[in-house]
Design a protein around this nucleic acid. Structure first.
Lengths: 214, 214
DNA sequence: GCTCTGCCAACTGTCGACAGTTAACATCGT
DNA sequence: ACGATGTTAACTGTCGACAGTTGGCAGAGC
C-alpha cells in the first residue's frame, strides 16, 4: 500500500491555501488572518502557520514581521526578474529535452500541441491548462527532476499574474506557433535551436505581461 | 535605525540550525530530535518546527511523516541532478554578468582571483570561502536577484558535499584557472564564451565530486 | 531457534492559552 | 482645524500539554 501522501493537517492546509491563492480567491495584496483562516479550515493555528510558511517559501505569500502573510503584488521589475529565472531554467530544460527525448516524449508533445490548436480553433480561449501541460511534457522529456521542480515553482508565481494574458488572440496564436517550433527542434535533437526558440517564446510572454501591467 | 533583521526566535533558530547542518556538526543521515534540539536552543518546539520546515524548503533537511527531519545524504544521481540545476542557473547568470558588468564588478572579480592565488601559493588549501566569494561577485555583476537567490540555495546544498573536494591540488589549480578565464570572458563582454567556460568549470567540479563519492 | 503478535516507550502532530507588538482610534494641546 | 500623544483592540509570536502514530522489544506459538 502506498503511504498516504499527506494526511497531516498542515499538508492539507498547504493544498487548500495554495488553491485559494492561485485561483485568486485571495487576491494579491490581501493580508491573511491566521485565526480567521484557521477557523475557516477547521484547524488550529499551528498547522496553518506551517502551511503559510511553506507557501511563503514557494513565493506564493510574503511575510512581514508581526504583520503576517499577504499575497504578493508584482511590479515590472519583479516580472523581469522572474522571467530571467524562468528563462534560465526552461532554456536549460529545453536543451536537455532535445538531447534526451524519447519517441514517446515527442508523441506526447505533438498530442498536446494538437489539442491546443483544436481548442483554439473551436473558439475557446487558449486554455492555460494546455499551456502548462505542454511545458510539463517538455520537462518530462528533459529528465532533470530538480530543474523540473524549480520550473514548477516559477510557473506557479507566473500564474499569479496570468490575468494579464487573458483574451489576447494574437499572443495566443504566436504561442501555439512557438510550441510547434519547439517540438520540431526537440524532435530533431537540436538543443541550441530548441533553446533559442524557448528563449524567444518566453521573451514574448514576458513582454506581453509587461505591457498588460504598465 | 535598521529594523532588527530577525528578532523572532524562529528566525534565530533558522540561522543556528543552518550553521549546525552546514558545518557538519549534525552530519548527513542524522535524525533531528525536536524536543532535544529545542532545549539545546532554549526555545519551544513551535518556533523550532518552523525553523526545521524552513531549512527543509531550502533542501538542507528532509522530512519524513511522523519520523521528523534528518540531514539528507546524496548519491550519484542526486549530485548529477543538483549540478544540472546549478549549471542552468550559473551559466545564465554568467551570460548576464558578461552583458551587464560594470568596471567595479571586474575590479572586484580580479581582486578575488588574486587573493585566491595568493592563498593557494602560500600553501593553504584553496579556501572554500574564496570560491564562494568569487561566485558571489559574479552573481552581483549579473544583477538578477532571483537567479542569485536560487544559486545561493543550490550552493548551500553543494556545501553539504564539500568534504569530497578537500585536498585535491590539481582540481584546485584547475579551478583557479577557470576563474581567471571566467573573469577574462566577462570583462571582455563575451556572454557565450563566459557561459561556456562556466559550463566546463562546473562539469569538472561535478566530475570531481562524483569520483570522490563512488 | 525462528516468526509472528501484542505491548510500550518515544516522538511527532495538534491544540488552546498567554504575552508582546503593531496599528488604528480617540483625546488633548496648540 | 490640525498635529501630537496616549490608549486600546487585534493580531502575531510563543509556550506547555495532550493525543495519535511509529518502530522496537518482549513473549507466545510453531
Amino acid at each position: 500500500m502506498t503511504p498516504p501522501l499527506h494526511l497531516s493537517l498542515a499538508g492539507q492546509a498547504v493544498d487548500v491555501l495554495r488553491e485559494l491563492v492561485l485561483t485568486g480567491e485571495i487576491p494579491p495584496g490581501t493580508r491573511v488572518n491566521e485565526v480567521e483562516l484557521a477557523q475557516r479550515l477547521g484547524i488550529s493555528r499551528g498547522p496553518l502557520r506551517e502551511a503559510i510558511r511553506h507557501l511563503a517559501s514557494e513565493g506564493l505569500l510574503v511575510l512581514a514581521p508581526h504583520r503576517g502573510a499577504s499575497v504578493p503584488t508584482a511590479d515590472a521589475a519583479d516580472v523581469q526578474a522572474l522571467f530571467e529565472l524562468r528563462t534560465a531554467l526552461e532554456c536549460a530544460a529545453t536543451e536537455l529535452a532535445a538531447s534526451r527525448r524519447s519517441d514517446a516524449d515527442v508523441v506526447r508533445l505533438r498530442a498536446v500541441c494538437e489539442e491546443s490548436r483544436r481548442a483554439y480553433s473551436a473558439g475557446e480561449r487558449f486554455p492555460y491548462r494546455l499551456d502548462l501541460a505542454f511545458h510539463q511534457a517538455l520537462l518530462d522529456a528533459a529528465r532533470s527532476p530538480r530543474i523540473a521542480e524549480q520550473v514548477r515553482l516559477v510557473q506557479q508565481r507566473v500564474v499569479l499574474l496570468r490575468s494579464a494574458l487573458r483574451d489576447d488572440p494574437p499572443h495566443q496564436h504566436a504561442s501555439l506557433d512557438d510550441h510547434d517550433a519547439l517540438v520540431a527542434a526537440v524532435a530533431a535533437g537540436d538543443p541550441s535551436r530548441a533553446s533559442d526558440v524557448m528563449r524567444k517564446h518566453l521573451a514574448r510572454v514576458c513582454a506581453q505581461m509587461l505591457t498588460s501591467l504598465g
